[in-house]
Design a protein around this nucleic acid. Structure first.
Lengths: 210, 210
DNA sequence: TAGATTGTTAATCGATTAACAATC
DNA sequence: TAGATTGTTAATCGATTAACAATC
């Protein structure tokens, strides 16, 4: 419909370019090339240049790309040049692992509140945060201007939680519950499902003969 | 090269079909259609029929698919009609969350051993398992006939761990470390990276005006 | 039978890649 | 300058979809 719309598949590769640029920067490299980024990711150099060309010109012929500059530009494009507040639903083992993982902060996200429905968990502290009652979801979301939620609850609770999130105005959901969720069209969702990854790898493994 | 090779993108959708079939089965449904599966997943019915046709004929005209039969066949195709032993590397918060998550077992995988390099963790128990020294990796892999590993260690350790896994004969790796790994061609890898998912959603969110 | 749904072909659509002029 | 690498066009490749005969 929109002739300027950028293919979603391109958008999904930009975070990978960012990962690679961060790595190169940490290794002290200041300049890189589409070839080098591609080699690291197993993607062709042409594809990387083509992807970037949707957004502008970021390199210099003969030289390549300034690592910091390109990183900065891609952050701006993905809108991660600002900080996004998240709410985390679910304070079980997975929730705790998510809270202790520094990668969200590094990626431009900060977890502003943790909520759970379990009375035994509500009020307990995890790191800097106190687990809140899921009933106070609307307040937590309003207070921190949250538009993104991370769902780390059992499959059986996931749809209810997601319905509540949508009612509270959340526009993007990262779900660790491995079941397809029903959502309005204007709410984005991404699934984290390790079993899906494992199951597509077993297809390629030689069958065991024992 | 191989004219009979099935597109990887098709293989990656089969686990999603399995998820949906399991859900339908749990809801007591015995028969389904490509339309219904597609509606749940946001995929066209035609695509599902086309995907299945790479492997054979599983339905009945006018009726649809027997839920249990199709589930069984797809499990067979992906080789998850058997049990795969995994080793888990990393006994931190994430490792514990992975161990407490029942989804692996349900999906055809069982975690046979947990290993870590941290002296303070080695010897401690998590659930049914005792954390082993990473140095005993080759023995653990041989003992349990392991060909798949789950990596839940910091980025700084990931490449070393993966090198050791490859040396020990592992052929598939599920990595929670968000950095591209260097691997031989015959070793499969899947990445679990929540930040990549979040960062591609922020692209689509309306910019905040404050 | 009539209605429903599959499996498959051919057409369309979109993504990747090869090639190369531009230029640092 | 010569060599390197970008940005972009056109060609190729592959995936999705529309259409429909087959048939339960």
């Amino acid at each position: 419909m929109n002739p300027l719309a950028i293919p979603e598949i391109v958008i999904r590769r930009i975070p990978l370019y960012l990962r690679t640029l961060a790595l190169l920067r940490e290794q002290g490299q200041t300049v890189t090339s589409s070839q080098e980024i591609g080699d690291r990711l197993g993607i062709s150099a042409t594809q990387i240049r083509k992807d970037l060309s949707y957004f502008g010109e970021f390199g210099k012929q003969g030289t390549g790309y300034d690592v910091r500059y390109l990183e900065e530009q891609l952050c701006r494009i993905l809108q991660v040049d600002r900080d996004w507040s998240l709410v985390l639903i679910g304070a079980g083992h997975l929730g705790k692992a998510i809270l202790s993982y520094g990668g969200f902060e590094e990626g431009g996200f900060s977890i502003a509140a943790v909520l759970d429905k379990d009375r035994r968990k509500i009020g307990s502290r995890i790191g800097d945060l106190e687990v809140q009652d899921i009933a106070s979801l609307p307040e937590a979301i309003a207070e921190h201007h949250v538009r993104i939620a991370v769902v780390a609850v059992p499959v059986s609770d996931a749809q209810d939680v997601v319905d509540a999130l949508v009612d509270a105005g959340v526009k993007a959901i990262l779900s660790y519950a491995p079941s397809p969720l029903a959502l309005p069209e204007d709410v984005h969702v991404e699934y984290i499902d390790p079993v899906v990854g494992l199951q597509s790898m077993t297809y390629y493994l030689d069958p065991l003969h024992r």
